[in-house]
Simulated assay, not measured.
Amino acid sequence: MNRVLVPLLMATLVVGVAAPVASDDVGEVVRAGQWQLGALRLPEAWRESKGAGVLVAVLDTGVNGRHQDLAGVVSQGPDLTGAARSAGLWGRHGTAMASLIAGRGHGDGHKGGVIGVAPAAKVLSIRVTLENGDPLRAQQRSGGGNALAKGIRYAADHGADVISMSLGGGSGAWEGSADEEEAVQYAIGKGAVLVASSGNDGDAGNRKNFPAAYPGVIAVGAVDRRLRVARFSNRQDYLSVVAPGTEIVTADGDDAYVVGEGTSSAAAMVAGIAALIKSAHPGMSPYHVRTAIELGARKRPAAGYSRAYGHGVANALLALRAADRLDAPAAPLPRPGPYFGAGPEPSSRAHVVAGLLALVAVMSVRVVMTRQRRGRDLT
Rank of each mutant, 00 (worst) to 15 (best):
P7T: 13
L8E: 13
M10L: 15
A11T: 11
A19H: 06
V21L: 15
D25L: 12
E28H: 10
Q34D: 05
A39I: 12
A57Y: 11
V58Q: 13
L59Y: 14
N64Q: 08
G72L: 05
V73I: 12
V73T: 09
Q76Y: 07
S86F: 11
R92Y: 07
A96H: 04
A102V: 03
H106C: 03
G107I: 03
E131S: 06
G133P: 03
P135G: 09
L136F: 14
A149M: 07
I152Y: 00
G159V: 06
S166K: 07
L167R: 00
G169T: 12
G170R: 11
G170H: 14
W174T: 15
E180R: 07
E182I: 04
E182W: 02
V184H: 01
Y186F: 12
G189I: 15
G189R: 14
S197N: 04
D201L: 07
G202T: 07
Y214M: 05
G221R: 01
D224H: 06
S233P: 11
N234I: 00
D237V: 03
S240V: 06
G245D: 06
T246M: 13
I248G: 03
D252H: 15
D252F: 15
Y257A: 10
G262D: 00
T263W: 11
S264D: 00
A266F: 06
A271M: 02
M284K: 04
G296I: 03
G296E: 04
G296D: 05
R298H: 10
K299Y: 05
A303M: 07
A303K: 14
Y305Q: 00
V313K: 03
A323W: 10
R325W: 09
R325S: 07
R325E: 13
L333S: 12
S348A: 15
A354E: 12
L357S: 15
V362N: 15
V362S: 12
V367H: 12
V368R: 12
T370I: 06
Q372D: 14
